[in-house]
């Protein structure tokens, strides 16, 4: 069996759940994976053991304190064996995987949503078409979350490799997001509002539901452009963020092609819109034809009683 190298996804100092999905992707590719954990504290690699994985390498280095693409790629490349490189399709991991691939003179296929032997499928033209490519030889691959089942955890067989890397960028200042809420790019559930919310103050109704579900709050471009209080960081779509959550709830959003470009691959889509002909309904698993004023209070109380 050929080898693969999984670059573990880490979040807030621990292994992110998507890493277990990467193991299933590696197995679907017919490879035997080694998991590589970039870290400053090797103990987090204890959480990166899975059925089907015989080896976990903690790549420990000061350079991993902040994200610096160049030193991360150098350190990961030095510690990782050869083989197909597999990473999560998050902005940072796509970036570092692209550099590791380039270091090794390999190609990279991003945002894979299906694997069939050595054939990989990803969206192109913002999801308006799909493309299947075949690999001959090693390459790097990033895999979208929520596509592959999570491999079961098991005890990790960890070896620690110390790496020092020369950083090529220096963080001067970290500006924490004003709200404690998750960013849409990091969330498994997103509730987004559009121009149909009527005013930025009405986003508080979305926030209440987000709090119940542990969700992020997103927005359409019309909302971001119309109201200064809705920052661009919340925008989902072609010129905003591409998201791939388990659940996307679109409220007062018409479903323009550029909005769909950012969220159409969500596993489940719920739409709340007063216009029964709004295009968003053709993409919704569950559509509610109603004003948000009518629907959101009902949704909030139903979800609250279910979650408590």
């Amino acid at each position: 069996m050929s080898e693969s190298v999984i670059i573990a996804e880490t979040s807030k100092g621990s292994i992110a759940p998507v890493t277990a999905e990467l193991v299933s992707a590696a197995i679907a590719l017919g490879t035997s994976p080694t998991v590589v954990v970039p870290c400053t504290d090797a103990s987090i690699a204890d959480g990166a053991g899975y059925d089907g994985v015989s080896r976990t390498i903690a790549v420990k280095g000061d350079c991993f304190a902040n994200y610096d693409a160049s030193s991360w790629a150098a350190a990961i490349d030095a510690a990782a064996p050869s083989g197909i490189i597999i990473a999560a399709a998050t902005p940072q991991s796509k970036d570092v995987a692209a550099r590791v691939a380039a270091r090794r003179g390999l190609s990279i296929v991003q945002d894979v949503v299906a694997i069939d032997g050595m054939n990989l499928t990803s969206p192109i033209y913002s999801g308006k078409a799909m493309q299947t490519v075949s690999l001959s030889g090693d390459a790097a691959v990033s895999v979208r979350a929520n596509v592959f089942p999570a491999a079961s955890s098991s005890a990790a067989n960890v070896s620690v490799v110390d790496q020092s890397g020369d950083v090529a960028t220096a963080v001067q200042e970290v500006i924490a997001r004003a709200s404690e809420r998750l960013d849409v790019a990091e969330a498994n559930i997103i509730i987004s509002g559009g121009r149909g919310m009527g005013s930025p103050d009405n986003f508080s109704h979305l926030e209440k539901i987000a709090d119940v579900l542990g969700a992020a709050v997103g927005a359409s471009r019309a909302a971001v452009d119309t109201w200064d209080d809705i920052p661009h960081s919340m925008q989902v779509g072609q010129t905003g963020k591409t998201v791939n959550p388990n659940l996307y709830i679109a409220v007062g959003i018409s479903g323009a092609i550029q909005h769909l470009a950012g969220m159409r691959s969500s596993k489940y889509i719920v739409a709340v819109n007063k216009d029964a002909d709004a295009p968003i309904f053709s993409h919704a698993d569950y559509g509610i034809v109603a004003t948000w004023e009518e629907a959101l209070p009902v949704l909030e109380s139903a979800l609250s009683s279910m979650m408590s």
Partner: peptide, 8 residues
Amino acid sequence: GAGSTGPG
């Protein structure tokens, strides 16, 4: 939609 070219 890749984002590979800059870092690569």
